[in-house]
């Protein structure tokens, strides 16, 4: 019984140490090394980031990066990691900056805001694109629904939903409303509850795509939307490429980057949805910098600058 009590007390102390660790922050020491965080090589965010800082060698290779970089799997682990490391630097999607608890850096003198992306001054951005199937044999109803879906993405209703999921795009004066154009898509008046449409591709586009399909299913005969987002590379591969007819086939795929020359699908099967911005982030406790230039960002990732104090504030 005594031991049990002792154990309880020990537990209490241990827990308190643990909790103490959460609240006490260390003061930032600029003479320390920068810890560089990166996404893995299949990530579209990584592609957009390294393209944006003119370091395209690093898109598919870890070999050119600074030694001791940390590779993380996903936007979420990137946020958690940089939050844990006051000497860390990483890059995330602008959509998640507000809730991340991290400090977003001003890039080349321009703050990462939606307005600056739309007016073209913030350059660390990437497009969200879609690609549909080119061959629809035996999938006539699916083809019509996807066609209607693509049209829906450019209506006021569609754009509003994209905006609500932090996609960056604006409504223009000539943007139609779905009510105006839905008569062109008679398939949406039928009952489509036995039709499954397969969505997939980039994980970054997932929240936008899910919100769109969820709303559009209501507007188009309650078709079933199945999402399986595995990476930008699969957008072409699973609609028109090598997996277009297997178990992984998609009716419409999304990419969070431009399609490569090797991925150019048939005429008229792909298009632009909206922009997303990538933003460089550091820990809130970081007092060394609030902004960074393109060339400095490259030097940090290539290992030419390894100390926080070597960066110009």
């Amino acid at each position: 019984m005594k031991k049990l009590l002792l154990g309880m007390m020990g537990l209490l102390v241990f827990t308190m140490i643990g909790c103490g660790g959460n609240t006490t922050a260390f003061s930032f020491d600029a003479s320390r090394n920068i810890t560089v965080y990166t996404r893995d090589t299949t990530s579209g965010t990584r592609d957009a980031f390294f393209t944006g800082i003119d370091f395209s060698d690093a898109i598919t290779s870890n070999g050119v990066l600074v030694a001791n970089y940390v590779e993380v799997d996903g936007n979420g682990s990137m946020i958690t990691s940089v939050k844990n490391d006051i000497y860390g630097i990483g890059y995330i999607s602008l959509a998640s900056l507000e809730t991340s608890g991290l400090k977003g850096l001003v890039f080349d003198g321009v703050a990462a805001t939606e307005a600056n992306v739309l007016n073209g001054t913030y350059t660390l951005k990437r497009p969200f694109n879609y690609m549909t199937r080119a061959h629809w044999s035996g999938m006539e109803r699916e083809r019509q629904i996807v066609e209607a879906f693509v049209a829906f993405m450019t209506t006021i209703e569609g754009i509003a939903t994209i905006q609500n999921k932090a996609g960056i795009i604006s409504v223009e004066a000539n943007t139609p409303s779905w009510d105006d154009i839905k008569s062109l898509y008679p398939v949406c008046l039928e009952d489509n509850s036995d039709v499954t449409i397969y969505f997939g591709g980039s994980t970054s586009v997932e929240s936008v795509a899910k919100a769109l399909s969820q709303e559009f299913s209501q507007k188009c005969g309650n078709f079933i939307a199945e999402h399986n987002h595995t990476g930008s590379g699969d957008a072409y591969k699973r609609t028109q490429g090598s997996e277009a007819d297997g178990g992984n086939k998609l009716h419409i795929g999304f990419a969070s980057r431009d399609f490569k020359s090797s991925e150019s699908g048939d005429e008229g099967t792909s298009g632009f949805i909206c922009f997303d911005a990538v933003v460089l982030v550091v820990n809130q406790a970081n007092t060394a910098i609030d902004s960074i230039t393109k060339s400095e960002a490259k030097k940090v990732y290539s290992g030419d600058k390894t100390l926080w104090s070597s960066l110009n504030p």
């Binding site: 799997d73 996903g74 936007n75 997932e206």
Partner: peptide, 10 residues
């Protein structure tokens, strides 16, 4: 569990 942890916002 894995799915909700692997998403963009775990």
């Amino acid at each position: 569990i894995w799915s909700v942890m692997a998403g963009e916002v775990p």
